[in-house]
């Protein structure tokens, strides 16, 4: 398995996921400052973005899609609820929350753009944070006691927002980020490639 990677990018999520799943993988560093991308990367990721993955015949990009793919394929029932488990619906809903709600809502707020919460799928920044906090509702992880790939997505969003200073003063989300950091696989992902 080959992971196209760059430091300080969403590729961190895929590394954390691979470490949680205990999989063997090869890292292919991508020079993100170069104007051109290799044809090898573009075959997996047409926008030239990292992370991208090659697993046998599978070539794909997008951190959320990669985490979903790896969890279902290599850690079913563990890092992803099985297709017929009652938790499956909520799990998928939260897998879409980072790319579909957290990131656009944060970008909109940072750009100072007027938000139209009725039309936006992500509501607005405040609604997004409120939904996230209530989703955790006093639990350690987003599905309760159970750590899943959805926590990798949400946890990495929390860690990124903390380092960029966009995580709102929320004790719930700060504590969640700390719990994620305390995991061995998260530490390995951070230390292995000095990805801070």
């Amino acid at each position: 398995m080959k992971l196209y990677w760059g430091p300080g990018t969403r590729a961190f999520r895929a590394v954390w996921m691979l470490e949680e799943a205990g999989l063997d993988y090869e890292r292919v560093p991508v020079d993100l400052s170069a104007p051109e991308r290799s044809s090898e990367l573009l075959a997996a990721s047409p926008m030239g973005k990292v992370p991208a993955l090659r697993d046998g015949d599978v070539r794909m990009w997008d951190s959320a899609a990669i985490c979903m793919y790896l969890a279902d394929r290599y850690a079913p029932g563990r890092l992803a609820p099985a297709r017929d488990e009652p938790d499956r619906g909520l799990y998928l809903q939260w897998m879409f929350f980072s790319p579909g709600a957290i990131e656009p809502a944060t970008a909109e707020k940072e750009a100072g753009r007027l938000s139209v919460p009725r039309v936006n799928g992500w509501g607005n920044f405040e609604k997004m944070v409120d939904t996230w906090e209530r989703g955790l509702s006093g639990n350690d992880w987003i599905l309760g006691d159970r750590f899943t790939a959805a926590d990798i997505m949400l946890g990495s969003s929390a860690l990124t927002m903390r380092s960029e200073g966009t995580l709102p003063g929320s004790t719930v989300l700060e504590a969640y980020a700390d719990r994620c950091l305390a995991r061995g696989a998260c530490q390995r992902a951070l230390n292995r490639f000095i990805d801070r």
């Binding site: 794909m60 793919y69 079913p76």
Partner: peptide, 18 residues
Amino acid sequence: FDDPDRGRFLQWMIFAPG
């Protein structure tokens, strides 16, 4: 889950909202 098209499929599922 083990179909070779699964990866690309998920990638396109994220494409509309993300």
